[in-house]
Amino acid sequence: MAAGGDHGSPDSYRSPLASRYASPEMCFVFSDRYKFRTWRQLWLWLAEAEQTLGLPITDEQIQEMKSNLENIDFKMAAEEEKRLRHDVMAHVHTFGHCCPKAAGIIHLGATSCYVGDNTDLIILRNALDLLLPKLARVISRLADFAKERASLPTLGFTHFQPAQLTTVGKRCCLWIQDLCMDLQNLKRVRDDLRFRGVKGTTGTQASFLQLFEGDDHKVEQLDKMVTEKAGFKRAFIITGQTYTRKVDIEVLSVLASLGASVHKICTDIRLLANLKEMEEPFEKQQIGSSAMPYKRNPMRSERCCSLARHLMTLVMDPLQTASVQWFERTLDDSANRRICLAEAFLTADTILNTLQNISEGLVVYPKVIERRIRQELPFMATENIIMAMVKAGGSRQDCHEKIRVLSQQAASVVKQEGGDNDLIERIQVDAYFSPIHSQLDHLLDPSSFTGRASQQVQRFLEEEVYPLLKPYESVMKVKAELCL
């Protein structure tokens, strides 16, 4: 049975990233139509530049190519590739079939990587351009969430054990800070992308030097003109047959890092959902379990974690691919890159769409948070109580021993009897502590235990987050809708 299948058929496997999760716009960027249309555009740009620099290419040939950029006979191309065992030459023939007058000058002087690699770089750039505003929107939604809850005390956790208090907004800023680093890295790697350009079979530009009869300047002009037509500021000066596969490492490393950030955020949300302090959106008709109707599973956060793990592992592909590119190139890269580049971007696209949807509907339960604080705060307040007693004339050592005994009794009630923490009640009825009984409410005010959390939130948002989001103001209103 021949390899390949009808990918629109229910009898043929289709990647869930495309069929179930990723956005239509990201799927289109990695589609065959987008790819092969870009090949034709690159052939047109090459012909236009070659004509401008004096090669015998007519206006009629150029116009014929322009008129057929979208006229792609995919069936013919597939048949040609089956016959020739070469995808680029299959599309040269297919393009030439609908451009008979231009057929002889299509791909003039070029090698397969002229269309293959340059198209990949265009796709990487455009895919990054799709991700950047999506990530900015996630940051914006979380920034709104953090600002609104900047002063809401909550129990902090280290080692997932109760620690000092923080605020809900401050905790959210930990998430935002990681995503801001990801946004900066995505922008950097996007701006650092260079075009492969017009380089020939081993990167020496020998074929173009021959076409222009040894004119170095025209060869350099050709490279520059096509690079500018493709919208790049610069091209690699040095290439082998391909652009260095280190570029793929750079791009997928940034995406993998984004995956790590999203995994951490969504894990926190899942843990908070278990504590009943916070939940992701839950639709009115949504079913959490087929057997347990009360369940409210954090399905979206779980999906993000599941896909983020996949995204983090994909960076190993370009690392290994770059390491086995012998001399000017081997074909070890080809099949692998067809999979890992598309999957990385479709996965990143999915987790950003999902995280935006989550961040637009996060639900906080202040009463649950308050109750958990009441359970733990008495123990945390013991040092403040000791200091207040010393100020009232008591002995630190005597007070410490009193607190120690009462704390152990209260802990026994919590752990052995399943009761509430009654340390404060014990202190309130103990005559030894009568000098500070009137101060206990103040000493137990949760806001006095959150330090500068709310001020940190305000400063972080104003100095770091809002300036970073400013270039994306025009796209901030787009909502994230999930079908599944």
Rank of each mutant, 00 (worst) to 15 (best):
A2W: 08
A2H: 15
A3D: 15
G5E: 14
D6Q: 03
H7P: 12
D11V: 11
Y13S: 08
R14V: 15
R14W: 15
S15Y: 15
A18N: 13
Y21H: 04
S31C: 10
Y34E: 06
T38W: 04
T38R: 04
W39L: 04
W43D: 01
L44F: 06
W45V: 07
W45Y: 13
E50N: 05
E50D: 04
T52A: 13
T52F: 06
D59S: 11
I62D: 02
E64H: 15
M65R: 04
S67M: 12
L69K: 09
E70R: 14
D73N: 10
F74M: 15
K75R: 09
M76A: 12
A78N: 12
A78M: 11
E80F: 06
E80N: 12
E81R: 00
R83L: 10
L84D: 14
R85Q: 05
H86Q: 08
V88C: 08
A90W: 02
A90N: 06
H91D: 03
T94Y: 15
T94P: 01
F95N: 10
G96Y: 05
K101H: 09
A102P: 05
A103L: 10
I105E: 06
H107V: 00
S112M: 00
Y114F: 09
Y114I: 05
Y114V: 04
T119A: 12
D120P: 03
D120F: 12
I122K: 01
I122S: 03
I122A: 02
A127W: 00
D129N: 12
L130A: 11
L132F: 11
L132G: 13
L132R: 13
K134C: 10
I139M: 08
R141I: 10
A143S: 13
E148Y: 06
R149Q: 11
R149F: 10
R149M: 14
P153R: 02
L155P: 03
G156C: 06
F160Y: 12
T166G: 09
T167I: 04
V168G: 02
G169D: 01
R171L: 02
L174R: 03
W175D: 02
D178A: 05
C180K: 05
M181R: 07
M181V: 08
Q184D: 12
N185Q: 13
L186Q: 07
L186F: 12
V189K: 11
D191A: 08
D192I: 12
L193S: 06
F195G: 07
F195P: 05
R196A: 13
G197Y: 02
V198R: 02
G200P: 03
G200F: 04
T201N: 04
T202H: 05
T202P: 01
T202C: 09
G203A: 02
T204C: 09
S207P: 09
S207N: 03
F208G: 06
F208N: 05
F208D: 05
Q210V: 11
Q210E: 15
L211M: 13
L211F: 07
E213P: 15
G214E: 10
G214Q: 13
G214D: 11
H217F: 15
E220A: 11
E220L: 08
E220I: 11
Q221L: 14
Q221T: 10
V226G: 01
T227C: 13
T227E: 02
E228G: 07
F232V: 03
F232D: 00
F232A: 01
F236D: 05
T242I: 08
R245E: 01
R245C: 00
K246R: 06
V247H: 11
E250D: 11
L252F: 08
S253P: 03
V254W: 06
A256L: 02
A260S: 11
H263M: 06
H263P: 02
K264F: 04
K264M: 03
I265L: 15
I265W: 13
T267Q: 13
R270W: 01
L271Q: 07
L275C: 08
F282N: 15
F282G: 11
Q286H: 02
G288M: 02
S289W: 00
S290C: 04
A291I: 03
M292W: 01
K295Q: 03
K295N: 04
R303G: 02
R303Y: 02
S306T: 01
R309G: 03
V315H: 09
M316Q: 14
D317Q: 08
L319F: 05
A322V: 14
Q325T: 08
Q325G: 10
Q325D: 05
Q325K: 00
R329T: 00
R329G: 02
T330Y: 04
L331S: 01
D332L: 04
S334Q: 05
A335K: 00
N336R: 01
R337C: 00
R337W: 01
I339V: 13
I339F: 12
L341N: 12
A342G: 12
L346S: 09
L346G: 08
A348C: 15
T350C: 12
T350G: 08
I358R: 00
V364G: 03
V364R: 04
E370K: 07
R372P: 05
I373G: 04
Q375P: 04
E376K: 05
L377K: 01
P378W: 01
F379S: 04
E383K: 01
I386N: 11
M387A: 14
M387S: 14
V390S: 09
A392P: 06
G393R: 07
G394E: 10
C399M: 06
H400Q: 03
K402T: 05
L406C: 09
L406S: 06
Q408K: 13
Q409T: 08
Q409P: 03
A410L: 05
V414I: 13
V414T: 05
E417P: 02
I424G: 12
I424E: 12
I427G: 04
S434E: 14
S434Y: 11
P435H: 08
P435G: 08
P435E: 08
H437P: 01
S438L: 13
Q439P: 04
L440Y: 02
H442F: 15
L444F: 14
S447L: 15
S448Q: 15
G451I: 05
R459K: 11
L461Q: 04
Y466N: 10
Y466R: 13
P467V: 12
K477D: 07
K479S: 14
A480C: 15
A480G: 15
C483F: 09
